[in-house]
């Protein structure tokens, strides 16, 4: 299995990336003239009562220079304090957890459906016994990719909420309300994933080792499920990681149509209201989500394919040697 050193190195890298993303967002928001926090609070249309506004101004120390504010934010962040929203004065962490509580079950269900759908399409497209079924399955991803999600969600709402009345389009009915948006999200995400899977499975099915497996008398179901599927789905892992990120952070349209207030809607609202602390928190969450799913995917790669580690070691070794050589060279120079 992978070494702890490798995991530690990747974690350190991720933390660095998160810091950079956070810093970039912070300074980008301050590029506009004036202090964004102060501007927002002082806005005449701001709904905040005077005392809340004063409290926020004191909390964010808007009279301090930029870098002081940055370290103030950073210090608070490290203590787990995400600050307070500028639109309603509530703690950002509370707002974020509300949004996540809406998003996580939906994203989880959508993810499960995506994987199921993608494998079903890909397996049919590559291994279905009749040619017309294979061709049909191969066409599905294209249709799925080129169907906009608002269209599909609109159709689903019209049919299942308005015509059949199975699910309310307004009220939150728990799990039942998740089904339609999850289907919409899964249909969109499964398209690209199944295309990559189809290519992976086709390639794996054409490898010479499959001929050997057939020749040694292994049943074809075992060849497909035990060998081809494993070999053929590894390339789809990267895309799967990106899909997880997208499902968690990028579902504004679907949330709007189905009247949910998840992370996507929350992002939209806070950007619209220029709610700086909230935007920062969201950027942070999205960065953490993407980086951690990518890390998990890379570790999975190494766990699934023994060749990756050998390769990883091989590509790392020379650079270390080069560096060692350089240091030695410098030492020699100094000595001379």
């Amino acid at each position: 299995m992978f070494s702890l050193r490798y995991v530690a190195r990747r974690m350190a890298q991720s933390i660095l990336v998160i810091f950079i993303v956070y810093a970039l967002t912070f300074f980008a928001l301050f590029v506009l003239p004036g202090d964004p926090v102060d501007n927002k609070i002082n806005n005449p249309v701001s709904p905040l009562p005077q005392e809340t506004a004063d409290g926020l101004r004191a909390y964010y120390q808007v009279d301090q220079p930029l870098y002081v504010q940055f370290f103030l934010h950073l210090g608070r962040l490290l203590r787990g304090d995400l600050g307070f929203s500028l639109t309603n004065g509530k703690p950002v962490s509370e707002l974020v957890s509300q949004a996540l509580a809406q998003t996580l079950p939906l994203a989880g269900l959508a993810f499960a459906l995506t994987v199921l759908l993608a494998f079903a399409i890909a397996l049919t497209a590559v291994f279905a016994p009749v040619a017309w079924l294979r061709e049909l399955a191969k066409a599905v991803p294209v249709v799925s990719i080129s169907t906009p999600s608002f269209l599909l969600s609109y159709v689903l709402v019209v049919v299942f909420s308005f015509r059949l009345g199975w699910v309310s389009s307004i009220q939150d009915e728990g799990f039942k309300s998740l089904i339609l948006p999850a289907i919409t999200l899964a249909c969109g995400a499964a398209g690209a994933l199944s295309q990559v899977l189809i290519r992976g499975l086709q390639k794996a099915a054409g490898e010479p080792f499959v001929t050997v497996l057939v020749a040694k008398g292994v049943p074809s179901s075992r060849i497909v499920l035990g060998h081809v599927l494993k070999n053929g789905s590894i390339p789809a892992l990267t895309l799967l990681a990106l899909t997880v990120g997208e499902l968690l952070a990028g579902s504004v349209i679907v949330e709007t149509v189905f009247n949910r207030t998840g992370l996507g809607y929350f992002t939209y609202a806070s950007v619209r209201d220029q709610d700086t602390p909230t935007i920062e928190a969201i950027v942070l969450i999205v960065a953490v989500v993407y980086l951690s799913v990518n890390l998990v995917a890379d570790l999975l790669y190494a766990a699934l394919d023994p060749r990756i580690l050998a390769h990883e070691a091989a590509t790392r070794a020379p650079s270390k040697r080069r560096l060692g050589g350089r240091i030695k060279g410098i030492k020699e120079e100094v000595a001379a």
Binding site: E207, P208, F209, T211, V212, L213, H227, K230, N231, L304, D305, P306, R307
Partner: peptide, 10 residues
Amino acid sequence: QDPLSSLDPL
């Protein structure tokens, strides 16, 4: 024919 690619690498 080709031993290098004739066993499942995984």
